[in-house]
């Protein structure tokens, strides 16, 4: 086994254990912290795949913004941080079945792929993956259309959030 493989196995184990803890722990803040650990594991996996930009963006967006908003919302709304209700509902076996089937399908698909047991090739020296990604996102031959569609979707979500938060009775958001 190479060093990269050992590191990957450790990171994957930590990520999976944290993901399991997210759904089993009863304390909501602890669940949010385990989620942060999971997302961090994913970021390390990106870094192992030579995707530096994605790894850092994962930390900025998911850990720095989304998970902190979770914690913020939990702290603002819940007095008691412990969840006392049952942790499973009656449809738990359907979800478990779906999860197992999805995992089985992924394994079955990847089994025949020859990339499974070859090592990733080294990046050429001086290759700038960030500008390659930037070019791909705005090039008409690559991903400009999905990129712009996603931007419009985000803008719509932004307008929707303002509409939901706006109180028409006061007529003005200023107090």
């Amino acid at each position: 086994m190479t060093t990269a493989q050992i590191i990957f196995l450790v990171v994957a184990a930590v990520t999976l254990v944290s993901a399991f803890m997210v759904v089993t722990t009863r304390n909501l803040i602890h669940a949010a912290l385990w989620l942060v650990a999971t997302l961090f594991g994913v970021a390390v996996t990106y870094a192992l795949l030579n995707a530096n930009f994605l790894a850092v963006v994962q930390v900025v967006v998911y850990i720095g913004a989304i998970a902190i908003l979770f914690i913020f919302a939990v702290m603002l709304t819940r007095k008691e941080m412990r969840d006392q209700g049952p942790q499973l509902n009656s449809a738990w076996w359907i979800s478990a079945l779906l999860a197992v089937l999805t995992f089985g399908g992924l394994v079955g698909m990847l089994w025949g792929w020859k990339g499974m047991d070859t090592l990733a090739s080294e990046m050429p020296v001086g290759f700038d993956s960030v500008s390659a990604l930037g070019d791909a996102l705005i090039s008409p031959n690559a991903f400009v259309l999905p990129f712009e569609v996603a931007s419009v979707l985000l803008l719509a979500a932004l307008v929707g959030a303002v509409y939901v938060a706006f109180n028409p009775r006061s007529g003005d958001s200023r107090k």
Partner: peptide, 23 residues
């Protein structure tokens, strides 16, 4: 190569300590 983004990422992690200490 992504030094500036690294700064941004670490700065965004720094919030956690304060929030968790308060809670």
């Amino acid at each position: 190569n992504v030094g500036v983004l690294f700064l941004m990422a670490v700065a965004s992690i720094a919030v956690y300590g304060i929030v968790l200490a308060g809670w």
